[in-house]
């Protein structure tokens, strides 16, 4: 069964852009042009995730997400906004949104984030103590990483980045997602600093010419996949 997505966005061009992308990616997409219709559709239920514009005619995004949370609806909500400021982001998350993306964005970034939201509940339920990818194993209790049985020494930060990848296996992870998820930074560094961190991690885990585990996805970010 295909996954159902609701898009609440008043700007027709942005709406068409998102709809096209997700339809091609195999989602069943429904749309609403204003807050009231969005609320109406949402309370009908059945959506796996909602993409919600922050500024909407009728009922704005913040109020909308607040009211559905008050009504006990836990559908993951990603909020889109033209306001990049950190405090705006915090306000969105406090109102009950699960993620926040600033316009303009690349479609890959949006898709990566939606995929992350859709998988989210499983993260909490599987309480495993080891994470694996191919021949790499991470022991979360003893904080040990081995590759093909050989132990790898990592800095605490490298360990954290690797864990972030292992928990989101087979999904694209953008640089912004890494910045937010690993460092909790919500600004855009001018340098290619995230890439430098990743190449350091790569050197550590692919040491000795092993298969590269982390691949670069052009224009989108990185991915760690099982095959």
């Amino acid at each position: 069964m295909s996954r159902r997505l609701l898009i609440v966005e008043d700007d027709p061009e942005t709406r068409a852009f998102i709809v096209k992308g997700f339809s091609e990616a195999g989602f069943a997409v429904e749309t609403a042009e204003n807050g009231r219709d969005g609320l109406y559709l949402m309370t009908d239920g059945g959506f796996d995730a909602v993409i919600l514009d922050r500024m909407l005619p009728g009922l704005d995004g913040l109020k909308l997400v607040r009211s559905i949370r008050a009504a006990g609806l836990s559908t993951p909500v990603l909020m889109l906004t033209a306001m990049s400021a950190v405090d705006e982001r915090v306000k969105g998350l406090r109102a009950g949104a699960d993620d926040y993306l600033v316009k303009p964005f690349s479609f890959q970034e949006l898709q990566a984030r939606i995929e992350a939201l859709l998988r989210r509940p499983q993260d909490g339920t599987e309480e495993t103590s080891t994470l694996t990818c191919r021949d790499l194993e991470m022991d979360l209790l003893r904080r040990r990483v081995t590759r093909a049985g050989r132990e790898i020494t990592l800095t605490p930060r490298e360990f954290q980045i690797l864990e972030f990848f292992l928990r989101r296996k087979n999904r694209v992870i953008s640089r912004t997602m890494l910045l937010e998820g690993v460092w909790d930074y919500h600004f855009d560094p001018n340098t290619n600093i995230v890439d430098v961190h990743i190449s350091k991690l790569r050197r550590a885990i692919d040491d000795g010419g092993a298969d590269p585990l982390i691949e670069t996805v052009r224009g989108a970010g990185y991915m760690m996949s099982d095959d």
Binding site: V86, D184, Y185, H186, F187, P189, N190, T191
Partner: peptide, 12 residues
């Protein structure tokens, strides 16, 4: 967040 950003700008 802003203080971290300020220091990061100074470092860059």
């Amino acid at each position: 967040a802003l203080l971290a950003q300020a220091l990061s700008n100074l470092l860059e």
